[in-house]
């Protein structure tokens, strides 16, 4: 079960830009990970999403489906802030459209569940 402490640090924390590691990203994967948040909380929520089977259990598939959904974002976008903003907009529109998943009772946007699962399946940033 995801605890509230992890949850606050993970899912809800995604809304805040303040925790972005400045200039951390050097390649798209790192940029995405930096945008999503490379923290134990995010990984824990991601692991729960995978355990509940509400998202694809494949890192590449997850990243591809996120990129496809973010049509406005350049494929090679490496700025975590830009990715984060685009993910935020996608998350809000998923919620508004009812594109949600249930993870241990928590109602998450499908795109954010994918993002956390992607983080959980990725090696930590150097």
């Amino acid at each position: 079960m995801i605890s509230r402490r992890y949850f606050l640090g993970g899912a809800v924390g995604l809304g805040s830009l303040a925790v972005l590691p400045a200039g951390a990203a050097t390649r798209p994967r790192d940029a995405w990970l930096a945008a999503i948040g490379d923290s134990p909380a995010v990984r824990s929520v991601g692991a729960a999403c995978l355990r509940c089977g509400v998202v694809e259990a494949d890192r590449q598939v997850l990243l591809r489906s996120l990129m496809t959904a973010l049509a406005t974002l350049a494929p090679q976008e490496a700025d975590p802030a830009a990715i984060r903003a685009a993910l935020g907009a996608l998350r809000r529109s998923d919620f508004a459209a009812g594109e949600v998943v249930n993870v241990d009772g928590w109602i998450l946007a499908r795109s954010e569940a994918r993002a956390y699962a992607f983080a959980a399946l990725s090696a930590p940033l150097a």
């Binding site: 949850f7 899912a11 809800v12 809304g15 935020g88 998350r91 809000r92 529109s93 998923d94 919620f95 508004a96 949600v100 249930n102 241990d104 009772g105 928590w106 109602i107 998450l108 946007a109």
Partner: peptide
């Protein structure tokens, strides 16, 4: 969620 207010656990 859509309003970025927070999250709900059912």
């Amino acid at each position: 969620g859509a309003n970025d207010i927070g999250r709900i656990r059912v």
